[in-house]
């Protein structure tokens, strides 16, 4: 348990066998845990926006579409098999209720994009804790494939 890897915003880390992947304070962002149970290979991506429209594409992990695709590619290069990989996700909250502006819809758009891209890549979504208005810290144990969601004013949730 001591080898805790911290994943920042627009970042991804992988661990195999043993290890805890952690990403803090997901607001409208989404943490995506991808897991191959046979290899006990796990990856956690912290995406911020639904669709990559950057010209240079220097930061694929910032976006749901390129983040999922790139992480799957890296997992497969380590021997993971597409048909075994499963996903668990948390985040996509609306932190502030601001009138009629588009602000705050980012969380919802992120959820939809993650769902769509997982489906497109043929990855089964096992569990999720998304939406609402709370920030979430997501911990992901690559050995068991279990996720734990910590929020302010809410009991811990195992996903």
């Amino acid at each position: 348990m001591s080898d805790k890897l911290i994943i920042g915003i627009a970042d991804m880390k992988m661990a195999k066998g043993e290890g805890m992947l952690v990403t803090y304070a997901l607001g409208s962002c989404i943490g995506i845990c991808l897991h191959d149970p046979v290899l006990k290979l796990g990856a956690l991506v912290h995406i911020m926006l639904p669709v990559n429209m950057e010209a240079g594409r220097k930061t694929p992990m910032k976006y749901a579409d390129t983040g999922i695709r790139e992480t799957l590619r890296l997992m497969e290069s380590k021997g993971a098999k597409r048909n075994r990989i499963t996903a668990k996700i948390a985040g996509g909250a609306k932190m502030f209720e601001v009138g009629s502006s588009s602000l705050g819809n980012i969380g919802q758009r992120n959820i939809e994009s993650v769902h769509m891209n997982l489906k497109k890549e043929g990855i089964r979504l096992l569990k999720e804790d998304v939406g609402g208005s709370v920030a979430r810290t997501l911990l992901f144990d690559v050995n068991s494939g279990l996720g734990c969601v910590r929020s302010y004013g809410r009991p811990e949730l195992i996903i």
Binding site: I9, Y24, A25, L26, G27, S28, C29, M48, L49, A93, M95, F96, E97, V98, L103, I106, S133, V134, A135, R136, T137, Y152
Partner: peptide, 17 residues
């Protein structure tokens, strides 16, 4: 608009925007 929550998620609002 007002919220009480983790400051990382609060600061991420202008970042995401």
């Amino acid at each position: 608009a007002f919220t009480v929550d983790m400051q990382g998620a609060i600061l991420a609002v202008p970042m995401a925007e």
